[in-house]
Nucleic acid binder design. Structure first.
Length: 488
RNA sequence: GCCCCCAUCGUCUAGAGGCCUAGGACAACACCCUUUCACGGUGUAGACAGCGAUUCGAAUUCGCUUGGGGGUACCA
């Protein structure tokens, strides 16, 4: 196997799933580590479930994650086209080859007949495998069936292929992440490679595409293990070189079921919409199964690629825990340069009138409110008090803070003193410190209680950004107006 | 039902026979810092699924059981 060529082959029946993104990442890392090529192929053989919107979403998400492909539907490449539906004229040739060599045969069974077989198997508590009743149809029988208007599907002859290339019915292969895997091919059943409508099935199309695109390593989810045996046999029957396979554990939701919509976001674009950063997403997902040799978990894709060894990926399933993703996202948000962050936050501030603030004030606001953000979207609820003349007072802040005698006294004092203060950061910082000290020394009020009164009056809540910064952004007039209004 | 895969703290994992009285990260809890929330810092608690076997010695090897996941389509 000379050149490393790997691929990600999503089917556009939905937006790019986070699990697919992880598979794409591991393929990408493997390619980068081995100076290979990373290829994108769209598997849209099932026209009913495919849509252009999903295809666009897959492209955009992969790009946003930084997983750029060397060959694909848009950029082309030497082995295109890279969209399965545009390759339909390629497959029949190989079906015919299999038919000619006896590794495949026509099957005229109707869906009803097949259903019947399955039912009988279930009732007899037997594992269902296709009966092969069409395997040895004579030409006359076929012609008769055809004249009745029946269109045949083409089935692959498992036993024949297995016998031709292997000693026993056990098929074994060496998985690059899981090690030796095996299966008794008698249990597989002759599967359809071409539907009666002429379209290739998944298991057939992948083999042809992987072979023609010279894919050297197939790295995918372990839900494909059972397909691998079928695929190996097709590779062999067609005389293609069999690629190496690697199967990754699945990503499960916290309740150990399949990660699905009801658990929250599942598509990369959903996460982004919710305020997750693609850098955090890709970093987090890399840690599901892979771990850095130096123990440092925060890493860029390039750094991970240096350290990546496919054989060291954990082969067990892993649970997608949002907590750690959030922590990591917060970590990444802290590293974004302020100017960039200002732009990134804007989509989450549409309910406010940003023109109320000068650019300088907006910068300041972002500076003092960014610290506790774990999601970009957290900004929405963190800043309402920077806008409008009046502020909405939180009921609890009203009751537990503003309604107390201490708070009322503090506020009266604040208003009378602050009206003479110079309203700039340095001075406010100093004056506020003096103000706290005064209340502590003369009346014995804790600094934080003093600040709570002011904070509640001006922001309507008892927690939030740095008070000096808030006062500065709001300005003297608005600040004192709100303070006055809170006094009974 | 049948087949396949997997199994270390709640979660992600380190660990490839003695370095393990099992290490780290997130979450939890406590304390410190502090004008609040948070950040940060310091600690605490928390796991080798069970049973057998191999071995002087097992989280690490083997078998069984249990548990979880996947597959069993003219879906991909």
């Amino acid at each position: 196997m000379s050149e490393v060529r790997v691929r990600i082959a999503p089917s556009p029946s939905g937006n790019l799933h986070i699990g697919t993104a992880r598979t794409a990442l591991f393929n990408y890392l493997f390619a980068k580590k081995n100076n290979g090529k990373f290829i994108l192929r769209i598997e849209d053989t099932d026209a009913d479930r495919t849509s252009q919107e999903y295809i666009d979403n897959i492209f955009d998400s992969l790009k946003a994650l930084g997983l750029n492909w060397d060959e694909g539907p848009d950029v082309g490449g030497p082995y295109g086209p890279y969209t399965q539906s545009e390759r339909f004229d390629i497959y029949p040739k190989y079906v015919q080859k299999l038919l000619d060599s006896g590794f495949a045969y026509e099957c005229f069974c109707t869906p009803e007949e097949l259903e019947q077989e399955k039912q009988e198997a279930t009732e007899a508590k037997r594992a269902y495998v296709y009966s092969k009743k069409c395997e040895n149809l004579t030409e006359e029988q076929k012609a008769k069936l055809r004249s009745e208007g029946r269109k045949p599907a083409i089935r692959f002859n498992i036993a024949k292929a297995q016998k031709a290339f292997h000693d026993s019915s056990i098929l074994e292969f060496d998985d690059i992440v899981k090690g030796k895997l095996h299966m008794d091919t008698n249990l597989l059943g002759d599967f359809v490679i071409q539907k009666s409508n002429g379209a290739p099935t998944y298991n057939f199309a992948v083999v042809i595409d992987d072979a023609l695109m010279k894919i050297s390593h197939v790295i995918r989810g372990e839900d494909h293990i059972s397909n691998t045996y079928k695929q190996i046999l097709i590779f062999e029957a067609l005389g293609f070189e069999v690629p190496k396979f690697g199967h990754l554990g699945m990503i499960l939701a916290p309740d150990r079921s399949k990660l699905s919509k009801r658990h929250g976001a599942t598509a990369v674009s959903d996460f982004v919409k919710q305020g997750y950063l693609t850098d955090a997403l890709i970093n987090f997902v890399a840690l599901l199964g892979w771990s850095p040799s130096d123990g440092e978990e925060i890493k860029t894709v390039d750094q991970i690629a240096q350290d990546f060894r496919i054989g060291e990926i954990s082969s067990s399933n892993s649970i997608f825990e949002y907590d750690k993703l959030k922590w990591m996202n917060g970590h990444y948000i802290k590293q974004i340069p302020i100017e960039q962050l200002k732009q990134m936050l804007k989509p989450y501030l549409t309910k406010y009138d940003l023109t109320e603030l000068t650019d300088e004030q907006y910068t300041k606001m972002v500076e003092i409110t960014r610290e506790p953000l774990t999601l970009l979207s957290d900004i929405t609820d963190a800043v309402p008090y920077f806008f409008g003349k009046d502020v909405q007072i939180d009921p609890e802040a009203q009751e537990k803070t503003l309604d107390t005698d201490v708070a009322q006294d503090v506020l009266k004092d604040f208003v009378s003193k602050a009206k003479d203060w110079d309203w700039n950061e340095e001075n406010l910082h100093e004056k506020l410190a003096d103000f706290r000290a005064f209340w502590k020394e003369s009346v014995g009020i804790k600094p934080k209680v003093t600040m709570w009164a002011i904070r509640a009056a001006i922001t309507g809540r008892t927690c939030g950004a740095d008070m000096v910064g808030i006062l500065e952004i709001l300005g003297k007039e608005k600040s004192l107006y709100r303070a006055n209004k809170a006094i009974k």
